[in-house]
Computed example of a mutant assay.
Amino acid sequence: MIAKLVRENKESNLTDTDLAMSTERLDRIEGILDKLIVDRQADRQEVGELRSSVSELRLSVGELNSTVNSLVQIVEIHQRNFERIIEEIQVMKAEIRGLQLENRRILERVFGPEEDWET
């Protein structure tokens, strides 16, 4: 291809300097094109790697969603258990207050009013 251009340039009465400059320019353009081809191949490889990474990230996100859902269920179970425990504690406190009141009445019957208990 370059030889053809050189021949055509000779036929058009270009000087050797003009011919050298044209050849040099063509060489630069060819070098740029070669670099663009290499860069494009590298870009394709990077795009492939990025697609692979995106697929892996999608799988990871799916696994994380599953884990989060499991943890939410566990938290909900613990919350319900905690609420039941609080209810049971409130019932126990009420029973304790009732027992304390009953003990006071028994003590008052046995020993008289509370102010007489001092010895």
Rank of each mutant, 00 (worst) to 15 (best):
F82S: 07
N103R: 10
E83G: 09
I96N: 10
S22F: 10
V54P: 00
I32Q: 11
G112W: 04
I89R: 07
V91D: 09
L107Q: 10
L26W: 03
V72L: 15
A42N: 13
R109Y: 11
L57H: 14
A42I: 09
E24L: 06
L101S: 14
D27C: 11
E102W: 01
R105F: 09
I77Q: 09
R80V: 09
E11R: 03
L14A: 03
I85L: 11
E56C: 05
L19N: 03
N9R: 03
S60M: 06
E114I: 05
V38A: 14
M21G: 01
E49R: 12
I37Q: 15
S12N: 01
I32C: 12
I89W: 03
N65T: 07
E30I: 02
W117C: 07
I29P: 00
V72C: 04
L107I: 01
E46C: 07
I2E: 14
I2R: 11
I77R: 09
E11L: 04
S70M: 08
E83A: 05
L26S: 06
Q79N: 04
D39G: 04
F82A: 09
I96F: 10
S52D: 15
V47S: 13
R25A: 13
E83P: 02
V72A: 13
D39N: 14
M92W: 02
E56D: 14
N13S: 06
S55R: 15
S60C: 05
D34K: 13
Q45K: 15
E11G: 02
G31A: 14
N13R: 02
L64Y: 08
E108G: 03
I2Q: 15
S60F: 07
L19T: 10
D27A: 15
I106H: 11
F82Q: 09
L99M: 08
